[in-house]
Amino acid sequence: MAEGLGGLLEGVKDEKEQIAIIAKAIEKFRFENDQSGYFFVYKKTVNVAHPVRKDLIGTDLKDFKDAKGVHYVVELYKQAKNGGGFVFYDFTKGGSNSTVAQKNAYAALIPHTDDIWISTGVYVDTLAENVEKDTKGVREYFSSSFFQALVISIVLLILICPFAFLFYKRLNVSIGTISRDLFHFFDFINYKTNEIKLSKIAGNDELA
């Protein structure tokens, strides 16, 4: 929007005429389903165009701050001077008699003007609604994928358990055989017995 307005103002030298063009351009522009999105314009810290808060036009808001102590106009002006940036602050939603809500605003200088900048923002509660709506499909997908993965895991566990049990049983028998034969062998070499036996090897695994 800043770049678009800058294109309209190219060649317009009179500042009052510039502000009139800007004010007309943003007057009826709205976004968001609840129409809470709009643009507002300042010359340094003086409001020069505002489609919702007409009472602010012509007022220097450098000392204005929200309930949390944020000098939002000064901070937005700083962001605009630095090439554009965001500021969080509390502001009325929908007009001077509406409720106060947290807002995340972005500010940028308008080209071909002398320190005139434009800003717009999204109220955090509206943003939360958008995030909820936009991520619904993703959350449903992951929920469905998790359920499928859980079912597959249970089925695999049921299938694997008998094999694991058989493996453990065979391993236990093999270890028992080795242990018994080793003790018998040690008894033989220590002259505790004169008898030695050869065990039958059954199987082709590592222990066998």
Rank of each mutant, 00 (worst) to 15 (best):
L56H: 10
E10N: 14
K44R: 14
D90T: 15
Y89D: 00
A25V: 00
Q79D: 05
E75Y: 08
Y77I: 03
A25P: 06
A25D: 00
K44S: 09
N104S: 13
D66K: 02
G85H: 06
A49P: 08
S36M: 08
A23R: 10
E129H: 08
T92L: 11
V73A: 13
G121I: 05
G84W: 03
T99Q: 10
E132N: 10
P111D: 07
A101C: 10
E17R: 10
F86Y: 14
T92M: 05
Y72N: 06
Y77P: 01
G11A: 11
V12L: 00
K13C: 04
I116R: 00
K13E: 15
K103L: 11
L61H: 08
V124C: 12
G95D: 00
V70K: 12
E32P: 03
H112I: 03
K65W: 09
A20S: 15
A25Y: 08
G58L: 00
L61I: 04
D63T: 14
K81Q: 14
K44C: 02
V73P: 12
V100K: 11
V131H: 03
I110H: 01
I110P: 01
A23L: 01
I21C: 06
F88H: 13
T113G: 09
S98D: 13
D55R: 00
N33E: 15
G7P: 00
A49G: 08
L109G: 03
A128S: 14
V124Q: 14
V122G: 15
A105C: 09
K81N: 04
D60I: 04
G121H: 07
I57T: 13
G83A: 09
A108S: 13
E132S: 05
K16F: 13
Q79A: 14
L9M: 08
I57Q: 10
G84P: 12
W117M: 05
V124W: 09
N104G: 13
K133E: 02
I26L: 10
A108W: 05
K93N: 11
S96C: 03
G121T: 06
T126L: 11
G37M: 00
L109A: 07
H71M: 10
V124R: 12
L9F: 02
F39C: 03
F64Q: 10
K68A: 15
G58I: 06
K28E: 07
K44N: 13
W117F: 13
G37Q: 10
D60H: 05
D114K: 13
F86L: 13
Q18V: 12
T120G: 15
V74N: 12
D63H: 08
E129L: 13
G7L: 12
Y42C: 12
D60W: 03
E129M: 11
L56F: 14
I116F: 00
G121L: 02
K13T: 13
D134S: 15
G7S: 08
I21R: 01
V41I: 09
R30Y: 07
G85D: 05
N47K: 00
K65F: 07
H71F: 15
A105M: 03
A105K: 09
I19G: 04
L127T: 00
G121M: 04
N47I: 00
K28T: 09
H112D: 04
Y72Q: 04
A107E: 06
A20C: 05
V48Q: 06
Y89S: 08
Q79F: 02
K16N: 15
R30G: 14
S96G: 00
V73W: 13
Y72I: 01
S96T: 14
A80T: 02
F40S: 07
T99C: 02
G85R: 01
I21S: 01
V48T: 10
A67Q: 14
D14H: 01
